[in-house]
Design a protein around this nucleic acid. Structure first.
Lengths: 344, 344
DNA sequence: CTGAAAGCGCTTACAG
DNA sequence: CTGAAAGCGCTTACAG
């Protein structure tokens, strides 16, 4: 429909090659001012728009990046998607978000599909699998960066940005103890791993370790699982059950702050009063955590930094495929709010 | 790097054309069983993956759809993105979400950029402009569908899915009146329109009309603006200000349920008790509206239906470019929760 | 400083 | 039932 290089070159009495050079700004001292200006003005007046597909075919670069995440309707991933797409856009790349719905199979499929979707690189926000190492099974058709939550594992063969829960979690546990909350119930999001203990999420592991160090009580029986974030009802029910079954508990740590409104409601239903006889803490800051009453104490990761590093690392790797894989660690931070402070 | 049609055809002793036909399933009675199976097995063992770019260049179809929305980190849009991408994926299309950040200029830019990004069609979730008609200024390089919130305007030249607020809003106003809430304060999200009254959002207009019919009091002075959803602090402050300035108010209607946690906090700060001496209602269901205490009464649109219709309408138009533009209306619905019910 | 030409990897009439 | 060939719209050595 619209103009092509050939059309322009015809009108400008030059070759397609020259037009291409000018329009891509690769005309150092190669093209004369006169032809250059002529070409530019003709291109403008013809409303020339390059066909991406032709460029992609000729150059082998798509300028597309696949971003694998659980679920765009979850604001945690939505926020990441937003941050990443922003930074990609600023670097001339387009972001293709791919939802896995937290399903392992679907994630595997996506990874296999992505080459067809033609991307120059892949960012995965979540490794669902044990040590994330299953990624290595999949033929990695493109540079790959992972947001990695697994402390203990070695670096592996690909770069990743590692979320270090230790700092924030240690702060949290110290803070709880200092406020006199000492009997911890856990609301856990089960991992979908057949052969791994379902409680073995890095968050859980770090918590467990820190609680041990600080002498907080948290027997295994006080760890209740709850389904993926979609089903708030389940979090509500599990909160009630946990508090009814183990009335000694005076702190609830919730795997994911998305669920806290339901947990607050459950605590109330169970006859508890947050800030008085029950503390609640969680992970991941979001738009409402400051506004629930009382506000939710959370351990949160520096999402903006992480998004930036994921993108930068990936683009660096695309530009220079031979660089060794890198690992960047980022620290989590505790944000204290009313939910863990003893009401005066 | 990986195999091409030529490689396969060489190994199978056939032509590229035949391979292409087989691999695309377009081999009715054109290709013999034998060659077909040979080709398929060779393709499999060579791990053949078609280059999208080459297909796009040859066919002119990208199977990409641009989705224009304000902000992925807002769960309202995130949820839409999720629904739309799901349905697109099921139809073999990829979804390219493009954030405008609610900026008119950026939206305009995006529309201009999209052809370069090579999309087969465009879905816009929000028309920021007066009557959405400015869309017509922009050269529409591809089939286009709009989620349209503007009741009064005529259909325009392109298809859209129209959100009909009338039903839900009428239900809301009747419900409020029945519960004895009669003095309405509005927290409004200003539109970024230079020459249009900033309060003229379709939601506001429908509300105003319905309140008039049912005789609820809501003078213009009780309409306070609040910034875009990002700044919850501002909603908090405006809630306090509105309630302090006009203590007669006994209902607050909030433009967007994302803001309700801050509004609840503001109401508490202003010495009000939701469900006792103040009702709160809002628009758009989300994950926490059922769980705030009391739960938030909302007017909500059938997001799943709308997403589906947006996609289906667009794909239909892509398949058949000559069909006349269509308008589909969808009804909003009231969900009553504690926030508007008189505590017994 | 500029042009002719090959090539990127497919698809699609067309001819047999 | 199958193949040869043109074409999609660019980019990039290469030769002048």
């Amino acid at each position: 429909m619209s103009a092509t290089l050939k059309d322009i070159s015809a009108k400008a009495n030059t070759s397609e090659a020259t037009v291409s050079l000018v329009l891509n700004g690769r005309h150092y001292n190669r093209v004369s001012q006169a032809t250059r200006q002529k070409i530019e003005s003709i291109a403008r007046e013809m409303g020339y728009v390059p066909r991406r597909a032709a460029q992609v075919l000729a150059t082998g670069k798509t300028h597309n990046i696949g971003v694998i995440l659980n679920d765009l309707s979850n604001p945690f991933y939505g926020h990441y998607a937003s941050l990443i797409q922003q930074r990609l856009w600023d670097n001339g790349y387009t972001c293709l978000p791919m939802e896995t719905g937290a399903s392992r199979d679907r994630q595997r499929n996506l990874l296999a599909w992505l080459p067809q979707k033609s991307v120059d690189g892949i960012i995965a926000l979540e490794g669902l699998w044990d040590g994330d190492d299953d990624y290595l099974d999949v033929p990695l058709a493109a540079p790959f960066i992972l947001r990695h939550q697994n402390q203990g594992k070695p670096t592996g063969e690909y770069s990743h940005v590692s979320v270090d829960y230790e700092h924030g979690v240690t702060q949290l546990v110290a803070h709880l103890k200092e406020q006199g909350w000492d009997k911890v119930g856990l609301l856990i999001q089960p991992q979908q791993l057949p052969h791994v203990d379902e409680l073995e999420h890095p968050r859980t592991r770090m918590l467990h370790q820190a609680m041990h160090v600080h002498g907080l009580r948290c027997p295994d029986k006080w760890w209740y699982p709850a389904e993926e974030s979609k089903s708030m009802e389940h979090w509500y029910q599990q909160t009630i059950a946990l508090l009814k079954d183990h009335p000694q508990i005076n702190v609830l740590i919730v795997h994911n702050a998305i669920a806290t409104p339901a947990v607050y409601a459950g605590a109330e239903k169970a006859g508890r009063c947050v800030g008085q006889d029950l503390a609640i803490a969680s992970f991941d800051e979001n738009s409402f955590t400051p506004w629930l009453r009382p506000g939710v104490t959370v351990v949160h990761e520096p999402m903006q930094d992480i998004a930036q590093q994921l993108v930068d690392l990936l683009l660096e790797q695309i530009k220079n495929p031979n660089t060794a894989s890198k690992v960047i660690k980022t620290k989590t931070q505790l944000i204290v709010r009313g939910s863990t402070q003893r009401a005066r």
